[in-house]
Computed example of a mutant assay.
Amino acid sequence: MVARIPISVALLVRDGLVLLVHRHPARRWYPDSWSFSAGGHVEAGELPHEAVVRECFEELGVRVHDAVRVPMTISDPTLDVQAFLVTRWDGEPVNAAPEEHDDLRWFRPGELAGLKLAHPESLPNLLDAINRGYLTPPVI
Rank of each mutant, 00 (worst) to 15 (best):
R105Y: 11
R69Y: 10
L79T: 05
C56E: 00
L104T: 00
H101Q: 13
V64L: 02
A83N: 02
T78V: 14
D102W: 12
D90W: 12
L104W: 01
H65F: 15
V86Y: 02
C56M: 07
A67S: 11
L104P: 00
D102E: 12
T87K: 01
V86M: 08
T73P: 01
V64N: 03
T78L: 14
A67T: 06
E58T: 09
E59T: 06
R69H: 08
T87S: 14
A67H: 04
E111W: 10
D103R: 14
E59N: 05
R88H: 05
A67V: 05
A67F: 08
L104V: 09
A67E: 05
D66A: 14
V68P: 01
V68I: 15
A67Y: 01
P109G: 15
F107P: 02
F57A: 11
A97T: 03
A97M: 06
R108C: 03
D103C: 09
F107N: 08
R105L: 09
R88A: 13
E59H: 14
P77H: 06
R69A: 15
L112R: 01
L79G: 00
W89R: 00
R54A: 10
R108H: 09
M72D: 06
D66T: 12
F57K: 04
V70K: 11
G110H: 12
T78P: 02
W89A: 01
V86S: 08
L85V: 02
E99Q: 13
P98Y: 00
E58K: 10
L85A: 04
R63D: 09
P93G: 08
D103K: 10
P93N: 07
E58Y: 07
L104Q: 02
R69K: 14
D102S: 13
A113Q: 13
V64Q: 05
V62I: 15
W106I: 11
V94K: 12
D90F: 08
F57I: 03
V94N: 07
P71C: 08
G91C: 03
P98T: 00
L112E: 07
V70T: 12
Q82R: 15
H101T: 05
P109S: 14
R63M: 15
A97R: 01
L85T: 09
P109K: 08
A83D: 07
P93W: 05
V62E: 02
L79W: 00
T78K: 13
A96F: 01
E55W: 12
G91W: 07
E111K: 13
W106A: 10
M72A: 11
L85S: 05
Q82F: 13
H101G: 10
F84P: 01
R63Q: 12
Q82H: 15
L60T: 00
L85M: 11
E111H: 04
A96P: 07
A67Q: 06
Q82N: 11
D76H: 03
Q82S: 15
M72L: 15
G110N: 10
D66K: 05
G110V: 05
R54M: 15
A83K: 07
F57G: 06
E59D: 13
L79D: 01
P71F: 11
L104S: 01
L60E: 02
V68E: 15
E111A: 09
V81D: 03
D102A: 09
R108F: 12
T73D: 08
W106Y: 14
D90Y: 12
